[in-house]
Design a protein around this nucleic acid. Structure first.
Length: 486
DNA sequence: TTAGGGTTAG
């Protein structure tokens, strides 16, 4: 460090007297050494003094350091002042914006990058795909995939894994398989993401249909394929399953309530001595609870030498799912006694446990006590409370709670109220909820259903017919698609 | 000089 400082003084001296021009390579190395040694202030000083003569790689490194420390404003400043930018400069910015959860800026910058005439590389494609992925972005994912194919980047495992995530988010099984086939050298990540995608889609879309079509007894078609892939991977030496692999597979087992496979994975984890991993154990609890085996979930939880908030949340959530409200409350008490700090999720789980078990008073009490732990009630907590009150038939109270909320009711809150109105055949409030949802310009799958049924029960067939007509009309509406990249 | 996949909820 002292050597670095003295060399900087030496160079600065010569520079100020304009005797020598300092070789760019030396300056670059000096700044890089400072950055590596955590000397950001000194690096920035040398950088600012010499910025006109610096290598593009040094500019990029400055941006990268700022991005890694979450200093996006500073990263932006350096990026904006660059005389020339290369693909690394753009990629580094994309990663920073992505980390900052700013997908719109990622896209804006991507378009700007294309206009500047630079071609994306595999890192660019991956960052963009991750930024645009989501159920409503079909056109974008397809466009970027097309671009990746044209540039020959869809063959890479790095880009491929992002594309796999993209197609999973579109719930596009065929797209998922096509991308996987395209990847030339599949690595552990490609396999993990594929397995995860298969499981997610298998559960949501193909579930019962695949189950019925299946020639064998206990495994749905997609799960069998995924299990075979998983075994293939376990057996191949270069693709040893890691913590990531097991965690993905467990999450997938949980999502598909695949207890059989979950147990197999559990024994693989134990055999490899990975049973102590907090994340894996938490995944195991979740898997067992979601597959219906709450005893096994509780067994894993009790055997954990180290726990964290997520583990407790997972256990409390498991009890909630099983309608074991009292157990959830008791576990929560133990959590607090053991000195763990509950977070937002803890209370969502706890309140939903009360809602499922009909423990109205206890739920209200916990809702009031949240502040003691420094947690402010957010929309999610209000949604649980609306659910709790409305399910228990206290619809007026639920409505009052919504009116008194410090924010506008959202889709989840109206949905909870709507569901309960269906349960208790309350037309008046059901219509309020349905109107609330339509004001958000959204469709609720149960909205028409609930209203039709309640109108039907009252013998109001004119309204039922009108609703059915409306339903057909909305369903027939097609989504507009437009191209705005390139 | 940039580097992807893991836990809890609704």
């Amino acid at each position: 460090m002292r050597m670095l400082e003295s060399s900087a003084t030496f160079l600065r001296g010569h520079f100020s007297r304009r005797i020598f021009t300092i070789p760019t390579a030396t300056l670059n190395r000096l700044i890089n050494d400072h950055l590596r040694d955590n000397g950001l202030v000194e690096a920035r000083r040398i950088f600012n003094q010499n910025r006109t003569s610096l290598d593009i790689s040094t500019w990029n490194m400055m941006i990268s350091v700022y991005v890694q420390r979450g200093l996006m404003l500073e990263a932006h400043q350096v990026f904006d002042q660059m005389p020339v930018r290369d693909v690394v400069s753009w990629n580094t910015m994309f990663m920073g914006l992505k980390k900052n959860k700013d997908p719109e800026s990622v896209l804006r910058h991507f378009i700007e990058m294309r206009r500047s005439g630079l071609n994306p590389d595999e890192l660019t494609i991956a960052a963009i795909i991750d930024a645009v992925s989501g159920p409503g972005s079909k056109v974008l994912v397809l466009q970027i995939h097309t671009l990746a194919i044209r540039l020959g980047l869809s063959l890479s495992a790095y880009t491929g894994s992002a594309l796999l995530r993209g197609y999973t988010s579109l719930r596009d099984l065929r797209g998922l398989e096509r991308v996987f086939k395209e990847i030339l050298l599949k690595d552990v990540v490609s396999w993990n993401v594929l397995i995860m995608g298969y499981m997610k889609l298998g559960f949501v879309e193909d579930g019962e249909r695949a189950f019925a079509e299946m020639p064998e007894r206990n495994i749905c078609r997609e799960f069998k394929v995924a299990l075979l892939l998983f075994r293939e991977m376990v057996e191949s030496w270069s693709n040893r399953p890691s913590h990531y692999t097991f965690s993905s597979v467990l999450k997938a087992c949980a999502a598909s309530s695949s207890l059989l496979m979950g147990r197999q994975v559990h024994s693989m984890i134990s055999k490899r001595g990975m049973a102590c991993d907090v994340v894996l154990s938490t995944s195991l609890i979740d898997m067992y609870a979601k597959s219906g085996d709450i005893t096994a979930a509780s067994g894993v939880f009790k055997s954990m030498p180290v726990k964290n908030t997520a583990s407790w949340n997972s256990m409390i959530g498991g009890f909630a799912r099983h309608g074991l409200g009292v157990e959830a409350l008791e576990e929560f008490e133990r959590m607090v006694q053991c000195g763990y700090k509950p977070d937002q999720v803890t209370f969502i789980n706890l309140l939903s446990a009360c809602a499922h078990a009909g423990l109205v008073e206890e739920g209200e009490k916990q809702f009031m006590l949240m502040g003691r732990f420094g947690i402010t009630a957010e929309k999610e907590h209000y949604a649980c409370m609306v659910d709790l009150l409305a399910r228990a038939g206290q619809l007026d109270k639920a409505e009052r709670l919504i009116k008194g909320m410090p924010f506008e009711p959202d889709f989840v809150i109206w949905g909870a109220l709507l569901g309960a109105c269906g349960l208790h055949s309350c037309l008046e409030l059901g219509e309020v909820a349905a109107k609330g949802i339509s004001r958000l310009r959204r469709e609720h799958p149960a909205a028409y259903d609930v209203l039709c049924r309640v109108h039907g029960e009252k013998g109001d067939w004119t309204s039922v017919m009108e609703l059915r007509r409306l339903m057909r009309k909305t369903k027939a509406k097609k989504q507009d698609a437009s191209s705005w990249i390139e």
